[in-house]
């Protein structure tokens, strides 16, 4: 109840926003998004613009609602029975909570990479081909081969696995598995890729590789990443949003947010005073 009480007081609270020096086109526009788990409200009137072809990082202490918010972008919260989302969210100017919208189509446009690598218990080839197959993106095996190779190339995994495409994806190392999951997400040519703490289960070397990959993917995709590591947010993102207790406290260009935060809570968090 305390979280709700705090939030109720903060209802009038305005997110501190710092615009980009040179504005980028907007890919996702969220307005007054609130999320409820049963009676409990997890997210309070969050509004944010996500720029196209850039990396936006969500940071904040555990339980602040950043992952919940991320999962609103491809309506993964639909899979939780008691979860309810209010507000408006536009991806490429189309409201994704429109009842006429097909969730399947949305998720083909907004891909997701999870915290723990979760390759399917199939071969590497089948893992990549899974998405294109269900969306009918290719017909012949040759076409699939092209998609598989391109996706693995983009995920920087091709050279490591090209000789064992038909071995199970679960046999790869953790870092390779996570890049396989990224390749899998890329395979359906999404516009947006959501990443929910993609490196939290990886060692530093694998993390560095994934971060490098995120930086490369930025050229073609809009990326939103949730991370616990502020260094990671600083390294890979162009914009950062700081969440606390279900509220978007502050958002702005990453270098501004980390060097001269305007809000005290942001400053406390990034200097390690809580969280």
């Amino acid at each position: 109840m305390s979280a709700v009480a705090v939030a109720a007081n903060d209802k009038a609270f305005e997110t501190v926003r710092t615009p980009d020096p040179e504005p980028r086109p907007i890919k996702i526009k969220a307005s007054d998004v609130s999320v409820f788990y049963g009676e409990k409200q997890a997210l309070f009137d969050v509004s944010i613009d996500i720029p196209e072809r850039a990396v936006t990082a969500f940071i904040g202490p555990s339980g602040c609602g950043k992952s919940t918010f991320l999962r609103c972008f491809n309506r993964m919260n639909d899979t939780i029975d008691i979860c309810r989302v209010t507000g408006e969210m536009l991806v490429s100017d189309a409201n994704i909570y429109d009842p006429r919208l097909d969730v399947v189509e949305l998720r083909a446009r907004v891909g997701m990479v999870f915290q723990k690598p979760n390759p399917f218990p199939k071969s590497i080839w089948d893992n990549i081909a899974y998405g294109p197959k269900i969306h009918g993106l290719a017909k012949t095996k040759a076409e699939f081969d092209v998609i598989v190779e391109e996706s693995l190339q983009k995920a920087g995994l091709w050279n490591e696995v090209k000789d064992r495409l038909h071995e199970p994806g679960t046999g790869l190392s953790g870092g390779q598995q996570q890049r396989l999951c990224i390749a899998r997400a890329v395979a359906v040519s999404p516009e947006v890729i959501l990443m929910d703490e993609p490196c939290s289960a990886l060692d530093p070397i694998a993390t560095a590789k994934v971060e490098e990959l995120i930086d490369e993917l930025r050229e073609n995709y809009t990326i939103v990443i949730v991370t616990h590591s502020m260094q990671q947010a600083a390294r890979v993102s162009q914009r950062t949003a700081f969440f606390h207790l279900g509220i978007l406290v502050e958002e702005g260009p990453t270098n501004v947010l980390f060097t001269s935060p305007k809000e005290k809570r942001t400053q406390d968090y990034i200097t390690g005073r809580f969280g």
């Binding site: 993964m76 399947v104 998720r107 891909g111 399917f120 899974y130 998405g131 269900i134």
Partner: peptide, 22 residues
């Protein structure tokens, strides 16, 4: 694992596709 299901759903497969394929 739930992650397997979520992974498949996040790829844009329907419930029955997820069930059948994963």
């Amino acid at each position: 694992p739930r992650a397997m299901r979520d992974g498949s759903l996040a790829m844009g497969s329907t419930r029955s596709e997820t069930m059948l394929n994963v």
